[in-house]
Amino acid sequence: MSTAFLKIAIPAFLSGTVITLKMSAISLLLGLAVGVPLAFARVYGGKFLRNFSLVYSELMRGTPVLVQLFIVYYGLPQFGIVLSPMVAGCLTMGLNSAAYQIEYFRGAILSIGPGQMMAARALGMSQFKAIRVILIPQVLRIVLPTWANEAISMVKNTSVCYLIAVPELMTQAKIMIAQFYNTIESYSTVAVFYLVIVGVMTIAFSLIEKKVKIPGLAIEKSKK
C-alpha cells in the first residue's frame, strides 16, 4: 500500500465515515420514530391500525431495500418529488428499518405480558399513559440487544447508498479505485473502517446494556 494512496485515502475515508455514521443515526432514529408507534399500534391498536402496521411491515420487509431506494431516488422525480441523495438515502433506509423495528418492538411488548398494562389501567392510567410510563421503559431495555444488531446492520447496509452517489464510505472506496486502480487495497481499507465502527458500537451497546440493566426484568421476560 503506497503512502501516496493512504495520504489521500485516509482523509477521504474519514469523511465517508462521518457521512455513514450520520446516515445511520438519522435512519435509525427515523426507524425508531415510525417503528415504535406502529409496534404499539399492532399490539394495542384498533383493527385499522393493526392492519396498517402489518401491511407496512410486510411490504417493506418483502421487497429489497435497493428497489425501495431506486423508487424513492429515481421514481419519485416522475411525480415532481426530487430528493437529494442524502435525503433519499436516509428516508429509504429509515422507513425500511422501521419495518424491522416494528417486529423487534412487538416481540418485546408481547414478552412483557398483559399484567403490566392491566395493573397500570387499574391504577387509573389511560392506555396511552400506561404505554408511555410503564411499558416503554421496559420495552426499551428488553429490545436493546436486538436493537443493537439493527444498528450494526444499518451501518453496513447504508453502503448500498453508493449507488445513488451519497458520499459515504463505500462511495469513497469507489472514488479511490477510480483514481489509483487498486481494487484490493481500497476495498480492504474500507472493510477495516467498517470493522472498527462495528467494533466500537458493539462495545458501546454492551456498556449501555449493563448500565440500564434492572434486576429481574429479564427474568420476567423469560417467564412470560
Binding site: 412483557i112 399484567g115 395493573a119 391504577l123 389511560s126 410503564i134 421496559q138 426484568l217 420476567e220
Partner: peptide, 20 residues
C-alpha cells in the same frame, strides 16, 4: 373510567408490580 379507577384499588394474583 380512568378517573373512576383512581380510588378502586386492585390486587392481582400475579402481583403485576411494575418490573422496572
Amino acid at each position: 373510567i380512568n378517573k373512576a379507577r383512581e380510588h378502586l384499588g386492585m390486587v392481582f394474583q400475579e402481583f403485576n408490580l411494575f418490573a422496572h
